[in-house]
Nucleic acid binder design. Structure first.
Length: 191
DNA sequence: CACACGATGCGCT
DNA sequence: GCGCATCGTGTGG
């Protein structure tokens, strides 16, 4: 069982593919020499769709990291009090990132804001290279659970796109969708 | 410079 | 289910 950070090749792929691939892997955070590992059980994909910070390919100082190389962290601040952490996907120049929404194996890490609070993730980590193993990284992991595919949470635009994925039965999932759990996950194009 | 509004979470009804 | 805290960011004047 490798305990090394996943490398660039893992992250450099279409956003929806990376979203699925991240399920079951481990989000790792080192604070004062102590490493905490949360199993990723819920994610959402954002590219240049209407709900994304990169809608219409619009590039701003805040979202620039989403246009950069895959395998970096995009951390943003919202509602005046919450941080959310994303993993950048796609080839350099193409915007895309996966929002981490829930972790197993760490108490209170269900929900994107809550997991950032529990792991002390804030904008100081925005833009860091997740392949470098410096404070925040991701390790490989597998899962046997069924993958549930459904719509994203808390958005108004493009609310119909089924770009949220989670592992059935995981306690770290922030919000379940019983209807989606009754159907097998579909395959959806990445652009 | 002013202003509207969130990829949320929590407490109360 | 609903209201609201609280402020960085984007947009328009």
């Amino acid at each position: 069982m490798s305990a090394r950070p996943l490398g660039r090749r893992f992250f450099t792929r279409p956003t929806l593919d990376l979203a699925r691939a991240l399920l079951g892997s481990w989000l790792c955070r080192e604070i004062d020499g102590e490493v905490r590992r949360g199993r990723i059980v819920e994610v959402e994909a954002y590219t240049h769709d209407a709900a994304s910070h990169c809608r219409e390919h619009r590039r701003t100082p805040r979202n620039a990291i989403m246009f950069g190389r895959a395998g970096h962290a995009y951390v943003y601040f919202t509602y005046g009090m919450h941080h959310c952490v994303n993993v950048v996907a796609e080839r350099d120049g193409e915007p895309g990132a996966v929002l981490i929404r829930g972790l197993d194996a760490i108490a209170g890490a269900n929900g994107p804001g809550r997991l950032c609070r529990v792991l002390a993730i804030d904008r100081a980590l925005d833009g860091i290279d997740l392949t470098a193993g410096e404070g925040l990284w991701i390790e490989a992991g597998r899962h046997r659970e069924a993958v549930v595919q459904t719509t994203r949470v808390g958005i108004r635009q493009a609310a119909d796109l089924p770009w949220r994925f989670y592992l059935a039965g995981s306690p770290g999932v922030s919000r379940r969708d019983p209807a989606a759990e009754a159907a097998p996950a579909r395959r959806v194009g990445s652009r």
